[in-house]
């Protein structure tokens, strides 16, 4: 009960304070006049015009730049790329080991003295021959 009373008392107090505020504001309110004041313009129009004008100028400048500025000289033709069949690896020479030709050819039996010499067992030197005691 007390709470409700206090609530209404507060509301009345607020209402009277706000009413006083309203009277003060009304005393300083401008006269009702629908014609826009001098210098008052439709809000936003100037900003929009400015943005559109800026966009137009930028577009025109870009177009002029593209049309008028000469293009750079064309690049010299690049070296022709070697075909895959002609290509050789730079480390190919490492595969050419000494004596590789021997492995590539098929030897004929008896045709070469060198091979038979190489295959023949060496004769033992007389110094190394063991003396067999009879």
């Amino acid at each position: 009960m007390m709470c409700a009373e206090r609530k209404f008392r507060d509301e009345d107090d607020f209402r009277s304070r706000f009413a006083q505020l309203r009277r003060e504001d009304e005393a300083h309110a401008p006269a009702f006049n629908l014609s826009p004041r001098r210098g008052t313009r439709r809000p936003g129009r100037s900003t929009r015009t400015l943005i559109v004008a800026a966009a137009c100028v930028t577009t025109m400048a870009a177009a002029l730049f593209i049309l008028l500025v000469p293009r750079k000289a064309e690049r010299p033709p690049a070296k022709p790329i070697a075909s895959l069949a002609e290509w050789r690896a730079p480390t190919d020479f490492l595969l050419d080991t000494p004596g590789r030709d021997l492995l590539k050819t098929v030897p004929a039996i008896g045709a070469s003295q060198d091979y038979s010499e190489a295959l023949r067992p060496r004769s033992k030197s007389p110094q190394s021959r063991k003396h067999v005691v009879p």
């Binding site: 309203r22 504001d25 009304e26 309110a29 401008p30 009702f32």
Partner: peptide
Amino acid sequence: RLHAASFG
């Protein structure tokens, strides 16, 4: 009619 209130 509503001008004063509108101004507030």
